[in-house]
Amino acid sequence: MVDLTERVSALAAIYETGTFGATVDGGPSVAFSERRPLSIVHVAGKPDDKAFSDGVKTACGCDLPTTPGDIATSGDLSLVWLAPERWLAVCPNRGSGVLEAAFRDACGDSGAIIDVSHGRTVIRLSGANARTVLMKGAPLDFHKKVFTPGRAAQSAISQCGTLITCPAEDTFDVYVFRAFGQHMWEWLTDAAGEFGYSVETPAT
């Protein structure tokens, strides 16, 4: 099911594909893109409540990750640990309310499910210097052996609360509240200026 009305990104007014920043030998070493449109659902419940954990598995196909900072995946969906009783389910847009309903139906009263698909801006950075850009902003350990694919952490960049995930080697997704989207985009691309960066077409 697709939404009939096109969703407008928080970055709509400033999004421009191309190559920017310093001219560096070997070309830009950071690539940016907005991940959109996405379905994002906040899932809360008690992991030791079988009705809830079974419900989550039914709704999205993967087990609840209970190790802090872990991400479970099932097909194109990721289930990110946020807090002891909170997760974020993220996947390419399934249509308004569809993912939320899947969780509600499967978990019943055992879980608190709320759609936040429109409430987040997700910025993807990849490339050899993506880590360095993030190091300028967040007080996290981004070392290759520490912040590995399949891991996530919440922290702050430029005073904004962020969720940062590492879906693949040298690839990071920065989630911020939608209202901070433009600020975060401007901040991150500015921080990448010295390396040269490209902006790619948005994709999920």
Binding site: P68, P84, S155, A156
Partner: peptide, 11 residues
């Protein structure tokens, strides 16, 4: 207790 060692500014 959950996320491990983190910088003061997150708290």
């Amino acid at each position: 207790p959950w996320c491990g060692d983190r910088a003061l500014q997150e708290f």
